[in-house]
Computed example of a mutant assay.
Amino acid sequence: MTLLTDNLIVDGVRLAYRDRGQGEPVIFVHGTPSHSYEWRDVVPHIEAAGFRAVTYDLLGYGLSERPVDRDTSVAAQTDLLEHVLNALGIDHVSIVAHDIGGAIGQRFALAHPERVRRLMIIDSVSYDSWPSSTWQKIINENLADFTSMPQDAFNALLTRQLTMTVADDTLMAGDVLQAYLEPHQSALGRVSFFEHQVRHYDSTYTEEISDKLGHLTMPVRIVWGEDDQWQPLHYAKRLSNAIPNADLVVVPGAGHFVMEDAPERVVHEIIDFLGTPPW
């Protein structure tokens, strides 16, 4: 399924995006190693429930531009999120964000609290939780010479990692697995993956805001797969203790890509949360 439908030029770069539905705006920010495909079983239901849903591929990810001379770190993607909202004429928004998208959401909400109605973070990176041990090993072994990696070796590496994102590994197979691998099926795709994603797996971006999380005053809901192998549940509990009045929802039988293991539950939590009065 192709979720994204259009392209948007913001701050001199092209982002693939989707802007559908009527009503209160909510923006979806995906994680890594991923793209907006992860929201395919979620976003249409949010649109149908009466919300304006905006979904986009981060710069350097999926169908968006892969520039050779632009910072694609969490900090830079946070700045770009502001440009996206401005370009779409959205002054106030609810944010639903996964993985590194969660770090982007946290940083944006702290920098622009007056613009964020609600913040939902799903299996987010936080504190010193990232990169995971398996990603750190990949960084140590491959980041210096990834340009010489054959396609088969790259696919095997990424498949091993993607299989870890779900509690039921039969869900990360066939067409679904291919959709996650698709953006990287070329030399440019492989280089982009390491340069735009892996090179920026850096907990500095979350550690430097860890003592500010108590300043978040908008409604916050934390949704977490109980069996997340990359972001263990104790980080979700730490976040919920640090953020005033945050709700913590633990989804049993789900891993890091909780929207793959339990899409109906994710849809339910989002719609329920969007019904929470802001501020």
Rank of each mutant, 00 (worst) to 15 (best):
M1A: 00
L3E: 00
L8N: 10
D11L: 04
G12R: 09
A16E: 00
R18N: 02
V26I: 08
D41K: 08
V43E: 01
H45E: 09
F51I: 01
T55D: 05
Y56D: 01
G60T: 12
E65A: 09
E65T: 02
E65S: 00
V68C: 03
D69A: 05
T72N: 00
V74W: 07
V74K: 03
A76K: 12
Q77H: 03
L80G: 01
E82A: 15
V84A: 07
N86Y: 09
N86W: 02
L88M: 11
H98M: 03
D99V: 11
G101N: 06
G101C: 06
G101K: 12
A103M: 12
Q106G: 01
Q106A: 07
F108I: 07
A111E: 12
R115G: 04
R115K: 14
V116W: 12
R117V: 09
R118A: 06
R118T: 04
M120G: 01
I121G: 04
D128I: 01
S129I: 04
S129C: 10
W130D: 00
P131R: 06
S133H: 10
W135M: 13
Q136N: 14
N140I: 06
N142Y: 15
S148W: 05
D152R: 11
D152Q: 06
A153W: 11
N155P: 01
A156F: 13
A156R: 15
A156S: 13
A156N: 13
T159I: 08
R160V: 05
T163I: 05
M164E: 08
M164D: 05
V166F: 07
D168F: 11
D168G: 09
D169H: 11
D169G: 07
T170K: 14
L171G: 03
L171R: 13
M172A: 01
G174C: 10
D175H: 13
P183F: 14
P183A: 01
Q185N: 13
Q185L: 15
S186P: 10
L188W: 07
R190P: 06
S192L: 02
F193P: 12
F193G: 08
F194L: 05
E195K: 15
Q197G: 10
Q197P: 01
V198T: 11
H200D: 13
Y201G: 01
Y201I: 10
E207A: 12
I209W: 15
G214M: 02
H215M: 11
H215W: 06
P219M: 08
P219W: 10
R221S: 10
D227T: 11
D227A: 14
Q229C: 07
Q229V: 15
P232A: 07
P232M: 08
H234P: 01
N241W: 10
N241E: 15
N241D: 14
N241R: 08
N241S: 09
I243E: 04
P244Y: 11
P244F: 15
P244Q: 12
P244T: 09
N245Y: 10
D247R: 14
L248Q: 02
L248T: 06
L248C: 04
P252Q: 13
G253V: 15
A254T: 05
E260P: 08
E260G: 03
P263E: 09
R265G: 00
H268F: 11
E269V: 00
D272E: 15
L274T: 10
T276M: 14
W279D: 08
W279A: 14
